[in-house]
Nucleic acid binder design. Structure first.
Lengths: 237, 237
DNA sequence: TATTGACTCTGACGTTGCGTCATAGCTTAT
DNA sequence: ATAAGCTATGACGCAACGTCAGAGTCAATA
């Protein structure tokens, strides 16, 4: 019989991990001495190999346990689902890499509304867990995503409108109407935009270099500052 | 000024997360009312955007904090390192996917000594953290990996040797010598193989379908069982 | 004005998969 | 018999929050 240390050296898992797997019932030693020493045999090693296999494939230990304990040891289904999950991760990380490269090159100037969303992954995990196919929520996500990235363009055109007015008085009615339009637009396309939030956004447009540069590039130098003032005006009334 | 809920709705992070970021000093609200209510402004929103950016790129919060707090807000270096990390993850997940596909197809028959090792990732993380370039440990890893996968072939040829002897008595001297050779081989190439461990391995060779099938395919039907008996013999003496 | 309802706060514990002590018991060899 | 080496069981720590629980606040309504 193998002691914990033997198994540890053999498989590379730590003694503490063996303790833990015992504690959670994932890998019980077939025998325990009177002194409480754990002793393992070949069958246990085999089970451990399986555990490590699934662990490597990112299965949570609980799931591994239920897979190995379920009498029908045919995990093809589970693995198929896991592959889909891994593929999502793969895609996601790929996107992150190109995103990171962009940041390196242009200093992260781009306003980025679309990539801040691993909803996809999270939602998919939910799905996989609850097994209601991968059609509905996934399509809804895509839908949302498309409509959102589409609206970003409209969003930017609002700023170029502001740019054209940026030499008039921020309190001017035409300008104030634009602010109202901006607020409505945000409310309709992103989230309910209260006056409070609008104020915060206005401030951020100048204090965040990324937003500032992006807005100025759409409306001309000074547009961001102008928008901020217009918003301040609007919110004071 | 924006309340926690405003910020939450605006950025998508939960109120609890804002509490947390405050607690760890990552994002302190610029003002707090007498009642203790947190109030945020545009600058805070901007900082939060940066936080989310780095968080999305898998930076740990502590690192984000030190990056944003270090006066020289030039994270190019950090991002470059992070990209390398992401690329490693990318590669690793890619390997996992093809590995998982293999398992699906052949039921995971292959003995798998090589993929159970994200040392690469871990070691690399260490490296990145300690900034001593990515040459040395990486090459050492490759070295180790190559020599290991090379030795797997020799390992299998041992089993075909056993296969040829599988109709003689397991106690026969020639067989026992092979067992000794097996033990030495494991000790030299993988880990110190005590008699105890050898016994465990022998048992596993038959109780784990993956090993059994692989060994039998190398030495012929019944080889795994034969090896187990030979080992038992060897260890009793 | 009193009371609802919506919002906020601070703890405290749960989660996942272990690592890291601390303390103590067991085993074996010298 | 004692030291060396192994083992055990807690207990705490980490990352990044989620999830209550209990309690205080704020604005608006009846």
């Amino acid at each position: 019989m193998l002691t914990v240390k033997d198994v540890s050296k053999l498989t590379g898992v730590s003694v503490r991990t063996l303790h833990y797997y015992d504690a959670i019932g994932l890998l019980k030693p077939p025998k325990v001495t009177e002194a409480g020493y754990r002793l393992y045999d070949g069958a246990a090693l085999s089970r451990l190999q399986n555990i490590l296999l699934f662990r490597e494939l990112q299965f949570p230990l609980k799931e591994i346990k239920s897979i190995l304990d379920s009498s029908d040891f045919n995990p093809k289904e589970a693995i198929a689902q896991q592959i889909e999950l891994l593929e999502l991760q793969y895609k996601h990380i790929g996107e992150l890499i190109s995103f990171a490269r962009e940041i390196q090159n242009n200093g992260g100037n781009k306003m980025n509304f679309d990539i801040f969303n691993n909803d996809e992954l999270e939602q998919y995990k939910e799905e996989v867990r609850e097994r209601w196919g991968n059609t509905r929520a996934f399509k809804e996500y895509k839908q949302r995503n498309v409509s959102q990235s589409g609206s970003v363009n409209e969003f930017m055109s609002l700023f170029s409108d502001f740019g054209e007015m940026r030499n008039t008085d921020p309190a001017e009615k035409s300008v104030q109407d634009k602010v109202r339009a901006l607020q409505s637009f945000i409310t309709e396309n992103f989230y309910t935009c209260t006056d409070e939030i609008l104020m915060g956004l206005g401030e951020m447009y100048v204090s965040d270099e990324r937003f500032k540069q992006n807005i100025d590039s759409a409306g001309g130098e000074g547009t961001a500052e102008f928008v901020k003032q217009a918003i301040a005006c609007y919110c004071e009334k």
